[in-house]
Design a protein around this nucleic acid. Structure first.
Lengths: 338, 338
DNA sequence: TTGAAAGCGCTAACAC
DNA sequence: GTGTTAGCGCTTTCAA
């Protein structure tokens, strides 16, 4: 695609002055006469001049691009976080280069390489659920490349990160169930290498204990966060000799899958089975019955991740850990009282 | 952020040869000796050399970036299309620069400018619903910048585009309702400047006529595609002296909003009121009752848009119009028979 | 007050 | 076979 953009050279030729004069005039260099500045700026406007970011990037060694890697591109959760990152980045004049790991460790590594080849200035990442090994992140740190994790994190002493208050939130859920009169509260967790699994499990247990409810290993299920795997987990719970009367799903997908499976078993929510998720506003209200849930401040999480990114970029500070407050919003799915 | 990437110069210096030798060796130029190629390639690997895309871009006048503008970043519909675009673009070694118009005409224009400043090689756009005026698109054409529309299109004789078979699909919906015994079939449309509104309306009317059902202007409502506005439209329908017994919602948001409003009025779906949407697989199955709908091939639409983009980029062909087949998937929300 | 020249990383035409 | 050079668009010394 031909060179359809006006360059400084074009302007210089047309005004019969040197390129450097044009360059200086455009940035109000004190050495340039008022009239010259006027002339140059006017022509630049007329010719729709805009500096070539490639040339600038080459010169200044900065591309104003941030690589963002998410486990998938299509769930509302990530989409909303991306929107948050994008809006903050735009303010700073940065663009986002987006990649999906598809929950695959290999693709995650591949995406990091690709983005670095594209010369992003740093990365904002939510780890794939397969990722158990962190050498690819460590080599970023070794090369001093700004890195921020969100939601799913690791190496927290070395990398800035944003998470929800997972433990606390999960504790609130368990206690809420208990208050509603539920006694056998199950938890469908995710892969144990993920901090969200561990933290939410810890909160779930702490909640049970604080209500003097027993912790029953049968009631703690695991899945790989896919819809099918979550349904199977729910199914196992329902087939228990002594099944639960309430379920806490670790995220959106899991909560939906559990809901479907509960309905398939002809059980009424919330009367036969209470259900609470860990999800965002949108999803919680679209299902039926509306889902009681910890609402995840997704957009804000994106904004915060971007903010941490620029902190890293501008001055290599020691890593920060931001924890976002969540809210328990009680809706029908756990509200026996109604 | 310092220069942490290895350059040809670095390699050349280390091997004590010229930069051009290194450059040629790396691309298997026939003039270079076998041993030299070996040596160079080995060192390049060891030093993790990758060509600087800024330098290449500057030289070749290509950035390998495509600008994509969508009305919003968070709905599953666009997310899925973006995933399709991304996957095709990645194959071709291109990156996506994403921007959202937030359904605003002004932001749409602004995004186009920003993306051009970032030197994208062309644009793939889904128009904002506010956009009635097309001069900003025409000036892209005038400057010979590759442009592709998807879903919401205009200037079809001048711009390549992908759409669903809107008219046909809507006709199928109306006929399906009629077959199920529904007689007063309503349609909640969107802004009339959008082709999707016009085409789906046309199909709806054609469907009614082919079933010898009267077209009742009272049953044709309009909204601005927001949740609230769709609910109000549904509410107006329900308050009609002679309300409908079935509703066709023009897209995801509208179908969900209608569903909520119907439930709020204590009506049973599908018995008191049939409901059909125009949405994707995911959303249709997450709600309750599962939504009969025209399933929109979103991912495929993204892939097709990208394919058209590269057609434009590689050779200025005359614009193509691709129409994607849709399927009517009958689920509970319109299935009186059950 | 303005111009010339070097250099960011790379390719390709032209030497030798 | 390999080296030299110019140039992509820009900023920034250094000269004038």
């Amino acid at each position: 695609m031909g060179n359809r953009h006006t360059s400084l050279k074009d302007l210089a030729r047309e005004l019969k002055v040197s390129i450097s004069t044009v360059s200086r005039a455009l940035k109000d260099h004190p050495d340039i006469s008022r009239e010259m500045k006027e002339k140059v700026k006017q022509l630049a406007l007329a010719r729709k001049y805009s500096p070539n970011p490639l040339a600038m990037g080459l010169l200044k060694q900065e591309t104003r691009m941030i690589g963002v890697i998410v486990p998938d591109l299509v769930t509302h959760f990530y989409a909303s976080i991306i929107a948050g990152i994008e809006s903050f980045a735009k303010e700073k004049g940065y663009f986002i280069l987006l990649a999906s790991s598809n929950e695959s460790y290999e693709k995650e590594k591949e995406s990091i390489e690709n983005l670095l080849k594209a010369r992003v200035e740093g990365l904002i990442i939510c780890m794939s659920q397969e990722t158990r090994e962190t050498s690819h992140f460590k080599s970023l740190l070794a090369e001093n490349i700004p890195l921020v994790f969100f939601d799913r994190v690791c190496l927290q002493d070395q990398v800035s990160s944003v998470t929800a208050d997972n433990t606390d939130a999960s504790k609130k859920i368990t206690r809420h169930f208990a208050e509603q009169g539920y006694r056998r509260i199950a938890f469908i967790s995710g892969p144990e290498q993920l901090n969200i699994s561990r933290e939410r499990l810890a909160g779930y247990i702490a909640g049970l204990e604080s209500c003097q409810l027993p912790v029953d290993a049968d009631l703690i299920e695991q899945c790989n966060l896919s819809h099918d795997s979550a349904r199977q987990a729910m199914n196992r719970l329902l087939n228990l000799p002594n099944p639960p009367d309430a379920v806490f799903g670790i995220n959106d997908t899991v909560a939906f899958a559990a809901m479907k499976e509960i309905k398939r078993h002809q059980l009424q929510i919330p009367n036969d089975m209470g259900l609470v998720g860990f999800t965002d506003e949108f999803h919680a209200t679209v299902v039926d019955p509306p889902l009681t849930s910890i609402t995840h401040p997704t957009y804000e999480m994106g904004v915060e991740a971007a903010r941490l990114f620029f902190d890293q970029l501008n001055s290599k500070q020691s890593p920060k850990t931001v924890t976002l407050k969540t809210r328990l919003v009680v809706r029908e799915s756990s509200d026996k009282a109604r």
